[in-house]
Amino acid sequence: MKSKIKKEHLKFIWIFVLLAVWELTARFGPVNPISFPSLAVIASALWESVITGDIISQIWFSMGFILTGLLTAIILSLVLASISTFSELMDSFTDTLVSVFHPLPGIAMLPLIILWFGTGSKAIFIIIIHSVIWPMLLNLKSGFKSVPEIYRKIGQNYEHSMAGILFKIFIPASLPFGLAGIKIGWARAWRAVISAEMVFGATGGKGGIGWYIFNKRVFMDTPGLFAGLIVIIGIGILVEDLVIGKIENSTVKKWGTSQ
């Protein structure tokens, strides 16, 4: 093999190999077609979900939740990280919050969340915020702490207010940390939403992608189940490689400040 093949192409080759192994196993292996459907069956299940628009509206529903949750959590953690930067008392308070809540998986809080917030969209929203805010805050705080003292002095020198220094210097300077936080936050929120939907079911309208998969499971529609998983993988790749990757390329990678 001449090493002309690019890494991304190699990824596709491996995906192709895995699919081929899958198909061979499904066709000729000693497996139950109920639990191990062939690719053609999965593909047609996926196609059907796409043309009936089910899966699209359900993805849309889940993504809408995640985006609003992500945005709210980012704003909240920015506020908390900012006050922590200017007050040592708040700094130790937010440290305590992070060390208490960061290790707690959102899904473990479900019983409590059901009791306090019910099972509606409010509950899912709380779970997303919980999933995102602590890793985000942790990253932003270390990002803010890593901002060189000189940067702050330059801000003061030009008589910028606290807010001005925050927005013009601290936030862009700690963007690599912020992006790392968003990456973790996104992954956590995405998982939390799927898990929560699988527990709660539809939380309005047609429900999200987790509910879609749950329904496929309870009706034993294994090809549909796989279709849902493929969509989840696809969205993961799309968001992480394309959206976040693009942002990184046009910011921290270009500036040479990526961690």
């Binding site: 060189p148 000189i150 940067y151 002095k153 330059i154 003061q156 020198n157 030009y158 008589e159 210097i169 862009p172 300077a173 963007l175 910011t251 500036w255 040479g256 400040t257």
Partner: peptide
Amino acid sequence: EKPRKEAIMVFQDFEQLFSW
């Protein structure tokens, strides 16, 4: 009493330009 625009500081550190 506090830093002012009239007196601007230049530092020894090479990293005083904003990296972004």
